[in-house]
Amino acid sequence: MKIGIIGLGLIGGSLGLDLRSLGHTVLGASQKESTCQTAKNIGAVDHARTDLESMPQSDLIFICTPIPYIIPTLQQLIPSLKPTTIVTDVGSVKTPIVQDCTALWSNFVGGHPMAGTAEQGINAAQFKLFVNRPYVITPTPESPAESVQILADLVSSIGADVYTQYSPQIHDQAVAWISHLPVMISASLIHACMSETDSHILEAAQKLASSGFASTSRVGGGNPELGVMMAKYNKEAILRSLRQYRQNLNDLINYIETENWSSLENTLEYTQQARPNFIDS
Rank of each mutant, 00 (worst) to 15 (best):
G12D: 07
T95F: 09
D161E: 06
I67Q: 10
F62M: 01
T95V: 13
G221V: 09
I67N: 11
G227D: 08
G13T: 05
A152P: 01
L189Y: 14
L52T: 08
L154K: 00
V148I: 13
M1R: 07
L151V: 03
Q120D: 09
T138C: 14
L19D: 07
E196R: 04
S186Q: 11
M229G: 00
F130H: 02
I137E: 02
Q99C: 08
P56D: 08
I42F: 06
I97C: 11
V183C: 11
L208C: 12
V183Y: 15
A125R: 06
L242W: 08
G110S: 05
P168A: 05
M114C: 04
T35G: 03
P134T: 05
N250D: 15
I178L: 13
A214T: 14
N107Y: 05
A118F: 09
S263E: 14
C101I: 06
T88H: 02
I279T: 15
R218C: 11
H47S: 14
C36R: 09
L10F: 03
N223D: 15
S188I: 06
E119Q: 15
D51P: 02
P66L: 07
F130Y: 09
D161M: 01
G222W: 09
I238T: 05
S217E: 11
S215W: 11
D251P: 00
D172T: 08
M55W: 05
A103K: 15
L239I: 15
I122V: 10
P56A: 07
T102D: 06
H171A: 06
A160V: 01
P79A: 02
G7C: 02
P56C: 08
S80R: 09
C64G: 12
G28A: 10
A204Y: 14
G13K: 06
S211G: 14
T73H: 09
Y166L: 13
V131Q: 13
I3V: 14
V45I: 12
L129E: 04
R49T: 13
S147I: 03
M55F: 06
K128C: 10
G28E: 10
T164E: 02
R49G: 01
K82C: 06
R243I: 10
V136H: 01
A174G: 13
V228T: 08
I170G: 00
A118V: 13
S241N: 12
T84P: 01
Q173L: 12
Q273L: 13
Q272D: 10
W261P: 00
L252P: 01
I190A: 14
T50R: 05
A124C: 08
T216F: 14
I122P: 02
L268H: 04
